[in-house]
Design a protein around this nucleic acid. Structure first.
Lengths: 159, 159
DNA sequence: CCGATGACTGATCATTTTGCTCATTTCGCT
DNA sequence: AGCGAAATGAGCAAAATGATCAGTCATCGG
C-alpha cells in the first residue's frame, strides 16, 4: 500500500482530485481539455481515466442514469428483515427484481436496505409485495422518497 | 409532451435505451463508436449526449465517484427525525456537513434518510454526532452499511 | 389533406483529438 | 544514494470532433 499522496495509489492524490473535479464540471470534456484544465500532461490524464473506468475511482455510469428518465419516477427504500440462514437466497431473489437498484446489508434493527424504483404507486405496491413474498423475508417496511432535500453531491469531498 | 417513442421526449425512447446501454458498457467510447454500436447517425448521438449531460437522462458524474477512493470507505444511513417547522434550516445545516452525500425526505416513522460517508468508525461517530447536534434534529439512528449484497445496477431497466 | 415543425440522416471539411511509442525526467520510498 | 513507478513532452498517423447543410420522415394541428 503506497502513500496516499504519491502517484497512482488506491486513494486519490492531488491530481486525481483536480481531475475528477474537472470531469464533474465538464462531463463532455476531451482528455486534452482536461489535461489543460488540470495542468498535467495528456498522457497522465489518459492513464488516470483508464484506471478510473476500470473501477479504481469511478464506479461506472449506472448511478448517473436517472431512473425517472427510464420511466421510474418513484424511489423508495424497503427496510427488510430476513432469516439469517437464507440471506444468500434472498439476495439472489432481490437481484432478480428489475426495480431493485441496490441492496445493502446494514447494522441495526433491520437487516437490509433495498433501494427500489417504480413506475407509480401501484407499481411500488407490487414491487414491495414481491420483496415481501421472497422466501426468507420476514418483514418489510417501505419508505417512499417524498422529496430530495440535499441532492447527491461529492464535490465537497474533493476540495 | 410528445409520445414516449418519438424523438427527444422526456422519457427514454428506443435509441436512448440502446445508447445508454452502450455507454454503460463502454464509458470511454467515442461518439462515433457509440453511433456505430447503436446504429444511428453520429449527429444523433451528439445531440443525445448533449441533452443527457444537460440533465435530461444523466444526473452528472457525482454518483459515479467512489467515496472510498476519496478516503471515505465507510457508508451509513442516518435516519433522522426533525421538528417540522425547522425542516429547511436542518436541510441547510446537513448540506454544510461535507460527509453528507444526499438527504431525502421519506414517508414513515422517520423524516429523513441521510446518506453519509466517513473515514473510519470514529469519524462516523463524529459525523452522526454533528447531525444530532443540528438545532431541530430530534432523534437519529445510524445504520452502518456492512456489506453490499446487490451492487447498484440500472441495466435491467434498459432492456 | 396540407403545412409547419422537430428530429434524424449522411455528406463535407478544417480542426482537434486520440492512440501509441519512446526517451527523459521527476518523485517517493527504502 | 539507488531504484522503480509515474509523469512528461515530443512526434505522427489515424480517428474523431464541431459545425454546417440539404434532404427525409414522422407527428401534429388546422
Amino acid at each position: 500500500m503506497v502513500s496516499p499522496d504519491s502517484g497512482m495509489s488506491d486513494r486519490a492524490d492531488r491530481i486525481d482530485r483536480r481531475l475528477l473535479a474537472a470531469m464533474l464540471r465538464h462531463p463532455l470534456a476531451s482528455q486534452s481539455g482536461l489535461a489543460d484544465a488540470v495542468g498535467v500532461s495528456r498522457n497522465t490524464v489518459r492513464a488516470r481515466l483508464e484506471r478510473y473506468w476500470r473501477g479504481r475511482g469511478l464506479r461506472g455510469l449506472d448511478r448517473a442514469v436517472d431512473p425517472a428518465f427510464l420511466g421510474f419516477p418513484l424511489r423508495a427504500f424497503v427496510f427488510t428483515t430476513v432469516e439469517q440462514r437464507r440471506l444468500a437466497s434472498v439476495s439472489t431473489a432481490l437481484a432478480d427484481i428489475p426495480e431493485v437498484l441496490e441492496v445493502n446489508g446494514i447494522s441495526g434493527d433491520v437487516d437490509l436496505i433495498v433501494d427500489v424504483v417504480a413506475r407509480d404507486a401501484d407499481d411500488l405496491y407490487r414491487v414491495a409485495g414481491a420483496i415481501l413474498g421472497i422466501p426468507g423475508v420476514e418483514r418489510t417496511s417501505t419508505a417512499l422518497v417524498m422529496r430530495p432535500l440535499v441532492p447527491y453531491r461529492v464535490k465537497q469531498l474533493l476540495d
